[in-house]
């Protein structure tokens, strides 16, 4: 190699770090451009309402079972844990409060986000990636239909609409899961439990949950579409795109969740 001076390895280390950093920044830039491009084109006609409804059904309706399942079990487990920990401090009465706050503020949005990311980001990346490698995206453009308007914009909008609705459902089911354990296993009084739940249920918390859900929905669709759109290299390329979509959607959901929480409560 050309670097034979003693500083060589150190420079090489910095160079490696620099390459990774530049690579990351380039990826962020490409993603941002992709998002801007989608917004710019998606906001101008032609619109495809039929595609939007199709996606809403795909993303929202068909994800409900898995979301409900996650919520009911998480709510129940949270109630049980809070109760177990609470017995040590003689504070078992906090169970309904902690369940409602925990579910509405954090667990509901984040778990729905992650579940839907696993289900939807991957499916979008695989579908669009396959369309890329089989030249269907080129065919679409050649047939004078803009893939951003026809494929990407409906997916983004559908996710931004569907996620908050799903979080509403998940929050209700999650609270109900906690209620089930508390009342039927831990011996809470049903009326009392619900009264405390209602007391700690803040509309502002719901508002924040919905904002989070909208942001997560945007990232889920953006990552699925971006990685699918850029897929290349046959089946292996589609596989990579799918994996990258899910991983990056997870990271963005977790990071943005923290940022929103810190901004709201910090």
């Amino acid at each position: 190699m050309t670097n034979s001076s003693p500083a060589g390895p150190i420079i090489a280390l910095f160079a490696a770090i620099g390459r990774i950093a530049v690579g990351w920044l380039a990826a962020v830039g490409r993603t941002a451009l992709f998002g801007v491009q989608t917004l710019r084109r998606g906001l101008t006609p032609p619109y495809y309402p039929n595609k939007l409804f199709e996606q809403l059904a795909h993303i929202g309706w068909f994800s409900l079972p898995v979301v409900g399942l996650t919520a009911v079990f998480t709510g129940a487990a949270l109630a049980q844990q809070t109760f177990t920990a609470g017995t040590r401090f003689n504070a078992t009465s906090t169970v309904p409060a902690i369940v409602v706050i925990g579910i509405v503020r954090e667990l509901g949005p984040v778990l729905v986000g992650l579940m839907v990311a696993g289900r939807v980001s991957s499916a979008m990346a695989a579908e669009l990636g396959t369309m890329r490698v089989t030249e269907q995206l080129d065919a679409l453009t050649t047939l004078r239909t803009d893939p951003y308007r026809y494929l990407i914009a409906p997916r983004l909008l559908a996710c931004v609409i569907a996620l908050p609705l799903m979080v509403l459902v998940a929050n209700a089911i999650g609270i109900f899961g906690g209620y089930l354990i508390a009342v039927y296993k831990l011996g809470f009084n049903a009326t009392g439990y619900l009264r405390v739940t209602r007391q700690f249920l803040e509309w502002s918390d719901f508002g924040m949950a919905l904002v989070k859900a909208g942001v997560f929905g945007f990232f889920i669709a953006l990552m699925g579409c971006y990685h699918g759109f850029r897929a290349g290299g046959g089946a292996a390329g589609v596989g990579e795109a799918t994996r990258d979509a899910v991983v990056s959607a997870f990271i963005l959901i977790l990071v943005s969740n923290l940022l929103i929480t810190v901004m709201a409560f910090g």
Binding site: M131, Q136, D138, A139, L140, T142
Partner: peptide, 16 residues
């Protein structure tokens, strides 16, 4: 301009 073109792609590229 694309309205003037028709293209048969190698693998067909039908929308599945």
């Amino acid at each position: 301009v694309r309205a003037k073109f028709g293209m048969l792609f190698q693998g067909g590229a039908l929308f599945d």
